[in-house]
Design a protein around this nucleic acid. Structure first.
Length: 513
DNA sequence: CTAGGGTTAG
């Protein structure tokens, strides 16, 4: 009676079904539990939390159930959890099958540069599963995605000419490593191109900003689907070409295609980055009222409204969402911080912790940004420690940049330098430049000189740093320093637009007076 | 319950 149809139920209804199974005492029979698990993985829009609760409540889950969980984690971008479930399969002394390895290899494809892909490859060989075309193609995809195109090509030879799935995986792999010409060569050599194959090549151009080539190719395609159109729209969207993206939306409409969630999400992100609230609202209306709002769509909506300044609309979307993930919270925290609403941003960070959500590196970047913006030095330092010592998140150059900026704005230049000095990674040019800027504002010529020297050593286009440094010397009354800097500018042949240099010097003059 | 394509936060 409850065999089929779970997948169409809402999360709430699923919880009821789960409860009924328990009450009626049939929660120990296999098939209803398999169906329930499948439905949980399918119905909670990528969140595996509830499925995991159900799974953990099953006394002796079979291989099928383990596989469903591995699949859920692998598709949901949680490779570590996929592997931990694989370990449970071993602990339960179950024998993993081709399904298990397909999912596991998919998880590996998301772990670029890791050895785990080779380990799974080894296990596949050991179990003699390589003759399975699904396994082989997933292996090709994994190696191609992780950059080992040598191994991928060898496997392609075994797959032969007719296997278009293997070919598209190779094309995507070359595109991912930036070799568009080689990708195109494989595309041209592919004998039995299908729709996916065309879309892979179009996406390769679009991802690298080659929109003319992407358009040219899609115009030659024998058929298109909603993914083909979304590929083009996303290409324009990431370049900030909103007008062009919207024109493609019209074009796909004329061709008889309705925008789907991916279309809307892409357009929203473009509107968010450009601050185009009116267009963002219009795009929001493309999503039909009454249709479920997935986590990704909700996140994109929050981000768009928050960044465009309509905080109330962002909060409405947030409060209507049934399930939230760390991206949801980060979108709110980051959106508020971006828009200068630091206090609110910090409030939401605290609410996120209260809700039991585990913050990640981006969460801290957002809240540190808010602290820096509002000059809340103590709070910022507290969050920085929380991140390092409680959540054990290693700060990236961006986090340091935030902290240095925060301390620098407050005039705590020595503290800023101290943080920068004990960084585990090499300080980036951005960080030195941040310090340099703070030195100029607060007139610390000695530290500014040091920062400038480090910047020059980094051997990149540093024309902005020369100008900034001339500001430092000027603001602390060391006019001789200005001459020296401008002299070395000429020697090294750094070209700086005169207007900018003049404006900068005027500011320096003013702060010196 | 299996393979290749498009979608979110900094």
């Amino acid at each position: 009676m409850i065999r089929k149809g779970f997948a169409r139920l809402s999360p709430r209804a699923l919880k009821q079904v789960h409860g009924n199974l328990v009450v009626k005492g049939i929660a120990s029979r296999l098939q209803p539990l398999r169906d329930l698990l499948l439905a949980c993985v399918a119905s909670f829009h990528g969140s595996m939390d509830y499925a995991r609760k159900v799974f953990d409540g099953i006394p002796h889950p079979d291989l099928f159930m383990h596989n469903v969980m591995v699949r859920g984690y692998a598709h949901g971008g949680a490779p570590a959890e996929a592997f931990s479930l694989y370990r449970l399969i071993e602990v339960a002394r179950l024998r993993p099958d081709a399904f298990t390895f397909c999912y596991l290899l998919r998880a590996c494809a998301g772990l670029s540069g890791s050895r785990s892909g080779y380990q799974v490859h080894g296990a596949v060989l050991k179990l003699g599963l390589l003759k399975d075309a699904f396994i082989r193609n997933t292996l090709i995809n994994m190696h191609a995605k992780c950059g080992d195109l040598q191994v991928a090509s060898t496997l392609l030879d075994e797959a032969g000419e007719g296997d278009v799935v293997a070919w598209s995986a190779i094309i995507a792999g070359h595109a991912a490593s930036g070799d568009l010409d080689i990708a195109r060569k494989f595309f041209d050599d592919c004998r039995h191109k299908d729709l996916v194959c065309w879309n892979v090549m179009v996406a390769a151009y679009a991802k690298h900003g080659e929109m003319e080539k992407a358009r040219e190719l899609i115009n030659c395609a024998p058929e298109k689907d909603v993914v083909s159109w979304n590929t083009i729209i996303t290409g324009y969207a990431v370049k900030g070409m909103l007008k062009e993206a919207l024109e493609v939306l019209d074009e796909m409409n004329c061709d008889g295609w309705m925008p789907d969630e991916a279309t809307i999400v892409s357009l929203l992100s473009c509107c968010a980055n450009l601050g185009s609230l009116e267009t963002g609202r219009m795009v929001h209306f493309l999503h039909l009222e009454g249709r479920p709002v997935s986590i990704i769509l909700g996140n994109a909506l929050i981000s768009m409204y928050a960044k465009c300044g309509d905080v109330q609309a962002a909060m409405e979307v947030f409060s209507r969402m049934k399930e939230r993930d760390v991206w949801t919270w980060n979108s709110v925290i980051g959106g508020l911080a971006f828009h200068g609403q630091a206090e609110q941003s910090i409030q939401f960070f605290e609410k996120m912790l209260e809700a039991g959500m585990y913050p990640n590196a981006v969460s801290f970047l957002c809240v540190l940004g808010a602290c820096s913006h509002a000059g809340l030095v103590e709070e910022g330092q507290r969050y920085f420690s929380l991140m390092k010592y409680r959540y054990m998140i290693e700060p990236t150059a961006r986090h340091y940049s935030c902290i240095v900026d925060m301390l620098g704005r407050a005039g705590l230049l020595d503290e800023a330098f101290a943080v920068l000095s004990c960084m585990r990674c090499e300080p980036s040019a951005v960080i030195w430049r941040t310090l340099l800027g703070a030195c100029r504002i607060h007139g610390n010529a000695a530290l500014g000189k040091l920062a400038r020297e480090r910047l020059l050593k980094m051997n990149e286009d540093a024309s902005g740093d020369y100008v900034m440094l001339s500001g430092i010397y000027a603001s602390s009354g060391e006019w001789f320093g200005v001459e020296t800097v401008r002299g070395s500018m000429d020697e090294r042949g750094v070209i700086k637009v005169a207007g900018y240099a003049q404006v900068d010097e005027k500011i320096a003059y003013r702060s010196a007076l």
